[in-house]
Write a protein that binds this DNA or RNA. Structure first.
Length: 425
RNA sequence: GGGGGGUUGGCCGAGUGGUUGAAGGCAGCAGUCUUGAAAACUGCAGUGGGCUUAGCCCACCGGGGGUUCGAAUCCCUCACCCCUCGCCA
């Protein structure tokens, strides 16, 4: 959410953001509504002032004067009640529009319509060369007896996965590795529930708009979050933090659920796109200072890059264009890891800076140096997401005999093993 | 799942339906005192919004709704917290 005052005073910039982000929103409608609401509110407040003044006279009035005042109060009350529905409707309507107003992209963001116009910034790591015919991750899992696609489909439908044997240890090892890695860098580990209230999605900015991506719990007012960004963003909702509480940095581990509505037919095979997965997420809450926030952006990006480097996975850094970055974001970079079987890079991490857009929605403020209440800034980035990261992991580290090489950094998390699986060739 | 008790300003805590935006305390800020600090004393001090902006007005006592001339105070409802009985990994 943006400050209404800011929107009024910078209508041009907001209109531009709406356009380059490809959003369907009529700013003039919002501004007109805002203007109308202001007039309405002034009328209502004037009447409230009159009502209050009248009510204050009653206890001091004589017995003769009293009935007249009470009648007047009744009339004022009725008039007010007549205006209230309109006022409330206007407020709600404005709020709905306000929730859709996108954040202003950083000056560095390239303008583009969708992910095809994202800009590659650099490539890191060395692409593997195989002296044998490499398999894709689905074949590797099958080869080692680490999956059971037919049976899991029978139990949980499509887009569900099952791991078996050492692949399970690998999944947990990768998660634990990421958690340790971030914890050493000062991020507080957090284990969060994916089960959240609907308003937390409004807070994170996923609602309105992303409703169809979210699973609802029948009979409860709860839903399943697609990332711990959702609960963590609402953790301090409504609070007034002391300046000393910031920055807050979290490494939040949780299950993540996504309905994947609208992506039917895409990536149905394997571990790339599943309904339920697990993730270690980096989340940062800092002061409302863009310079400081961008330093944090660099840090959480570097953390993710260092994780990929430690896992010995080649990747590239991509800057998302305006059309692919989402309403709330000021700046967004994706990390894409190399998938040999497809001969391309696929998104495994997503790094975002949202300014105070989320904190306004959750009403999360802190007292600045001058004691002024200020909305905090928020950032987030993937730490590691499984099983998706296992796709590049298995494929890049496969060996001629069908076993999977374990990078040195991960070995302590796998009881010192240097490879996984049995030699099968 | 049953029963009981709660939710008031940054924190603690009082509050009889009528100048209560809310006593008191702590923390905060400014000042007096002091070589300095502490203590003590004095004063300031909630958040958001509007306007004809040294000021005035409106809203806010967990959320929403209601009763009333008037609600922190009465009623309904939802959420959360605590206690207790039962069940349970």
């Amino acid at each position: 959410m943006l400050d209404l005052k800011f929107i009024r005073e910078n209508a041009g910039a907001v209109r531009h953001a709406i356009q380059v982000k490809g959003m369907d929103l009529d700013l003039d409608e919002l501004l007109a509504l805002d203007h109308e609401l202001l007039g309405l509110r002034q009328r209502v407040e004037a009447m409230q002032a009159e009502r209050n003044a009248n009510a204050k006279l009653v206890p001091k009035a004589t017995a003769d004067e009293r009935p007249t005042l009470i009648v007047k109060g009744k009339e004022l009350g009725e008039e007010l009640r007549a205006l209230e529905p309109a006022l409330r409707a206007h407020e709600e309507q404005l709020r709905q529009l306000l929730l859709r107003v996108p954040n202003i992209p950083h000056v560095s963001v390239p303008v583009g319509k969708d992910d095809s116009e994202n800009v590659e910034l650099r490539r890191e790591g060395v692409l593997p060369e195989f002296a044998f015919k490499p398999l894709d991750h689905v074949e590797l899992l099958e080869l080692q007896g680490w999956s059971d696609p037919e049976r899991v489909a029978q139990v949980s439908g499509s887009r569900s996965y099952l791991l078996k044997g050492e692949a399970v240890l690998l999944e947990l090892a990768v998660q634990m590795f990421a958690l340790d890695f971030l914890s050493v860098r000062g991020f507080t580990p957090l284990s969060t529930s994916a089960l959240v209230r609907p308003e937390t999605f409004v807070g994170s900015g996923h609602f309105p708009g992303g409703e169809d991506q979210v699973y609802k719990i029948e009979g409860d007012e709860l839903m399943l979050a697609g990332t711990s960004e959702v609960p963590v963003n609402s953790l301090y909702a409504g609070e007034q933090l002391p300046l000393t509480a910031l920055p807050m940095t979290f490494a939040a581990i949780s299950a993540a659920f996504r309905s994947e509505a609208g992506s039917a037919g895409r990536d149905v095979r394997g571990l790339i796109r599943v309904h339920e997965f697990r993730k270690v997420e980096q989340y940062v809450l800092c002061r409302a200072d863009e310079t400081e926030a961008l330093v944090w952006f660099g840090k959480i990006l570097q953390n993710a890059e260092d994780l990929l480097t430690a896992l010995e996975l080649p990747y590239r850094v991509v800057q998302n264009c305006t059309g692919d970055m989402g309403a709330g974001k000021v700046l967004m970079y994706d990390l894409e890891s190399w998938v040999p079987s497809e001969g391309l890079y696929r998104e495994t991490h997503s790094c975002s800076y949202l300014g105070d857009w989320q904190a306004r929605r959750t009403n999360l403020r802190y007292r600045d140096e001058d004691g002024k209440l200020t909305y905090a800034h928020t950032l987030n980035n993937t730490g590691i997401a499984t099983p998706r990261i296992l796709v590049p992991f298995l494929e890049n580290h496969q060996q001629a005999d069908g076993t999977i090489r374990v990078p040195e950094a991960l070995q302590p998390y796998l009881a010192g093993k240097i490879s996984l699986g049995k030699p099968v060739r």
